[in-house]
Design a binder for these strands. Structure first.
Length: 281
DNA sequence: GGCTTTGTTTTATA
DNA sequence: GTATAAAACAAAGC
């Protein structure tokens, strides 16, 4: 199966945020045009006009623009959302919102599906309105201790259960990991994605944590994964797809042992695995 | 036309 | 009540 969409996970969103820090910071918004009502959630009584973007941050897979007057303009791309400085040819009808600036430029939010969302709200409502309040730990701002507690223990201190991959994907535990990086983390850790977390020995926790960090860091270093289109706000390609060790390589040989990489389903998700290198716990 | 792709929410079950 | 699993949703490509 060949797919053409760019699936933004933490490294891809971080790439966009870094670009926006260069290109959108300190611009003043003239207006926010909503082309699809369900994709735009604007708090009542708030108008984006004549507000400067003071900074741009990331939380999990959320892009957060910090505006004047304690306001937040937040974007989640979900699966197929794109935030770009131009309208892509043939995709005019998928533009869901436009941020117009006073200097005549515009940032276009387009989305083939209708999952992506833009929120404009007050700082005090930001977490609740966007759903950010349900996010777990932020990888680059958390220690191994944070990770161990959140990922392997429930609130009563008991061992968490479930498939390893499924838990890696849970945004309420650790924010930012999606299907691609989950497969990579499992491979690098030598663990089968359907390993039960309650069966993983404690002495392997640190290795998993380090692989989470390493996979995300490398993704950022290469400006994210572009499966066949673009990545950035200007249409530039990410390069990390060239460095993936397991995702998208079904039928190919494992770089470590040479055996064939299989594609299976874990928790309803397409999953890539080397049965020889990745042990089932 | 049916199946696939995935991030998140919602519903169901243990 | 809590935790986990599964279903639902969206739209397009093959």
């Amino acid at each position: 199966m060949h797919f053409t969409e760019f699936m933004p996970e933490l490294p891809e969103v971080e790439t966009i945020v870094r670009e926006l820090k260069k290109s959108a910071k300190n611009k003043t918004i003239m207006s926010l045009d909503c082309h699809l009502e369900s994709a735009c959630v604007v708090a009542s009584g708030i108008n984006a006009g004549n507000l400067k973007i003071l900074d741009i941050e990331r939380r999990g897979k959320f892009i957060v623009m910090i505006l004047e007057k304690n306001l937040r303009l937040t974007v989640h791309l979900r699966m197929t959302g794109r935030l770009m400085w131009h309208v892509e040819k043939g995709r005019e009808k998928y533009v869901r919102a436009v941020i117009n600036f006073t200097d005549g430029t515009a940032l276009y939010f387009s989305d083939v599906r209708k999952f992506g969302r833009v929120w404009l709200c007050r700082k005090k409502d930001f977490e609740k309105v966007t759903g950010v309040c349900r996010l777990g730990i932020e990888p680059f701002f958390s220690s191994f201790d944070d990770f161990e507690k959140t990922f392997f223990c429930d609130r009563l201190g008991r061992r968490k259960r479930g498939f390893l991959k499924n838990n890696l994907l849970r945004q309420d535990l650790i924010a930012g990991i999606g299907n691609i990086y989950a497969d990579e983390i499992c491979f690098r850790s030598g663990l089968h994605p359907s390993s039960r977390v309650e069966m993983i020995p404690k002495n392997q926790f640190k290795k998993i944590y380090q692989n989470v960090m390493a996979c995300l860091e490398e993704g950022i270093l290469h400006c994210g994964v572009s499966v066949s289109d673009f990545v950035g706000t200007k249409g530039d390609l990410g390069k990390h797809q060239n460095y993936l060790k397991i995702y998208g390589r079904a039928g190919d040989e494992c770089y470590e042992c040479g055996s064939e990489i299989k594609k299976i389903r874990v928790a309803g998700r397409g999953t890539h695995v080397c049965e020889k290198c990745q042990v089932q716990k």
